[in-house]
Computed example of a mutant assay.
Amino acid sequence: MKDLACQQFQDTVAEFLIRHQSILDIISKSQESNARVNRAVVKAVTHCGCVKVRAEKSAIPPEATLADLKQLLDSHLDGELCPNCREIIESEMGKSIFYLTALCHSLGLSLADVLQREHEKVSTLRVFNFT
């Protein structure tokens, strides 16, 4: 069912790719939309204040294992997104997903396959995937 939802979304994106059919347009719009996600998160901190960044160097004991890092490291965020910031960030993320899907379409890739392969990789390698 999830594959069907991904394929339906990819088909819809392909149907509405009118102005941005060029791979160059898609890549530049993807970069722009990712920057807008970042900016929306920053504005949640600096403009709204619903979340705060509390960043400092994490103290990691020399004997800590890779498994210990899950408890030793955190997101550096305090608070929770307010409904307005959540809506804005979700909207910007949706646009990023749109352009990622458009990129898949233009390159003849299946978004569902890309997600499935990444899921398998993360599931197989687990924490070692990101070291």
Score class of each variant (00 low, 15 high):
residue 104 C to H: 06
residue 126 R to Q: 15
residue 102 A to H: 10
residue 116 Q to P: 05
residue 20 H to R: 12
residue 123 S to F: 00
residue 102 A to M: 03
residue 43 K to R: 15
residue 87 E to H: 09
residue 71 Q to K: 11
residue 105 H to S: 14
residue 124 T to E: 09
residue 14 A to E: 09
residue 129 N to S: 14
residue 38 N to Y: 00
residue 115 L to I: 15
residue 102 A to W: 01
residue 51 V to W: 02
residue 19 R to Y: 08
residue 114 V to R: 04
residue 75 S to C: 06
residue 96 S to W: 07
residue 58 S to H: 15
residue 93 M to S: 11
residue 78 D to N: 10
residue 99 Y to F: 11
residue 24 L to A: 08
residue 73 L to W: 05
residue 104 C to E: 00
residue 131 T to W: 05
residue 108 G to E: 06
residue 96 S to Y: 07
residue 60 I to H: 04
residue 96 S to E: 08
residue 58 S to F: 12
residue 123 S to K: 13
residue 75 S to T: 10
residue 18 I to R: 11
residue 73 L to K: 03
residue 50 C to T: 03
residue 67 A to N: 13
residue 128 F to C: 11
residue 85 C to L: 01
residue 90 E to Q: 12
residue 105 H to Q: 14
residue 105 H to M: 10
residue 123 S to L: 03
residue 72 L to Q: 05
residue 21 Q to H: 11
residue 34 N to M: 11
residue 27 I to P: 02
residue 56 E to W: 03
residue 41 V to T: 07
residue 16 F to C: 13
residue 74 D to V: 03
residue 26 I to E: 00
residue 101 T to P: 07
residue 56 E to A: 12
residue 2 K to T: 09
residue 95 K to Y: 07
residue 72 L to W: 05
residue 44 A to P: 10
residue 10 Q to E: 05
residue 111 L to E: 02
residue 93 M to R: 05
residue 25 D to H: 12
residue 23 I to C: 08
residue 34 N to R: 14
residue 93 M to P: 00
residue 15 E to A: 07
residue 7 Q to F: 00
residue 40 A to I: 15
residue 38 N to A: 12
residue 130 F to C: 06
residue 9 F to A: 04
residue 1 M to Y: 06
residue 17 L to P: 13
residue 123 S to N: 08
residue 68 D to F: 11
residue 91 S to D: 08
residue 65 T to R: 03
residue 52 K to P: 02
residue 54 R to D: 10
residue 89 I to F: 02
residue 119 H to S: 10
residue 2 K to H: 06
residue 36 R to P: 03
residue 68 D to K: 01
residue 53 V to M: 03
residue 53 V to K: 04
residue 25 D to W: 10
residue 68 D to N: 12
residue 130 F to N: 07
residue 46 T to V: 09
residue 59 A to Y: 04
residue 111 L to Q: 01
residue 28 S to M: 13
residue 128 F to T: 09
residue 43 K to M: 12
residue 5 A to R: 15
residue 108 G to M: 00
residue 80 E to D: 07
residue 37 V to N: 04
residue 69 L to N: 04
residue 36 R to K: 14
